[in-house]
């Protein structure tokens, strides 16, 4: 059974490739696609030892999702699967949420030798108090990750500005949800916003901010976008299935940064 979240649907990819398991997986996927969720996440946590058969499943699933106009992500990708996808030059063709070690594995003995902490997922309604509460959660999360205070503050500020822009200008219904993921990576932290509001591509907007003019003209517009662009390293925007804005912001970590693994000895 697919797991329903407020945001989308999660389906477990079987490790066993017998006919029954495959039929069950694709039947579940097709039924889920008919329900038109915002997105579908394929849980790859069982794929410790990925084979070409598993890759075919993922590729087939991705094709079906694309035809349905529904974004698909791979969740809990193990190092083994990541390696196979990279060898086949397919890794970049999937949206991979997070590469993780299998339970019991020592992540530092994996292919990259790097531990990455789990991502944070939030869903908020477009209300000022929910944005404020989420800022606190983002703050607590970034502090738990051991990030430098200035880095965490920049990300909190970016979060607030983006979430506020969506709240004020997205045209969302009061109970529609904005999904946010903060994803720690090897060299950067990625923050991804998905909202079903009106299309808005901030990357296409010019942000000319002249301080002298801003004071003279008592400028109030465009400051947030300027801040966002200057506080992160990359921004990308995608309109998915003509119904979902997906904004991805990345901020690089300092060279040589290593995540603290609280579970390590």
């Amino acid at each position: 059974m697919p797991v329903t979240t407020e945001r989308g649907r999660r389906i477990l990819v079987p490790a066993d490739l017998d006919e029954g398991a495959l039929d069950g997986f694709f039947a579940e996927l097709d039924i889920t696609l008919e329900e038109s969720p915002w997105e579908i996440s394929l849980d790859c946590s069982l794929l410790d030892h990925a084979t070409s058969g598993h890759i075919n499943i993922l590729w087939d699933a991705q094709t079906r999702c694309e035809h349905a106009g529904i974004p698909m992500r791979l969740l809990s990708v193990r190092y083994g699967l990541e390696r196979v996808l990279k060898i086949l030059d397919l890794f970049d063709l999937f949206t991979v949420e997070q590469v993780t070690a299998a339970p019991g594995d020592d992540a530092r003995d994996g292919n990259t030798g790097v531990f990455t902490p789990p991502a944070l997922e939030l869903e908020i309604r477009p209300r000022m108090e929910e944005v404020s509460e989420a800022v606190v959660k983002i703050h607590d999360y970034l502090v738990r990750l051991g990030l430098p205070g200035s880095y965490a503050f920049d990300m909190e500020t970016v979060f607030y500005e983006v979430a506020t822009n969506i709240r004020r200008h997205g045209g969302l219904g009061e109970n529609e949800l904005v999904s946010i993921r903060a994803i720690p990576g090897e060299e950067r932290v990625t923050m991804r916003f998905a909202d079903p509001g009106q299309p808005f591509d901030p990357t296409g907007r010019k942000t000319m901010f002249d301080p002298r003019q801003a004071i003279r003209l008592k400028q109030t517009n465009g400051i947030g976008l300027t801040m966002i662009k200057r506080l992160v390293d990359t921004i990308s925007y995608e309109r998915v299935g003509n119904r979902l804005n997906v904004l991805t912001l990345e901020k690089k970590l300092s060279p040589g940064w290593r995540w603290r693994d609280d579970n390590s000895e």
């Binding site: 506020t164 400028q219 300027t226």
Partner: peptide, 13 residues
């Protein structure tokens, strides 16, 4: 936030 900055800029102007 940017709204706070906007408030300051307006006041300075």
């Amino acid at each position: 936030s940017s709204a706070g900055v906007g408030s300051i800029l307006g006041a300075v102007g």
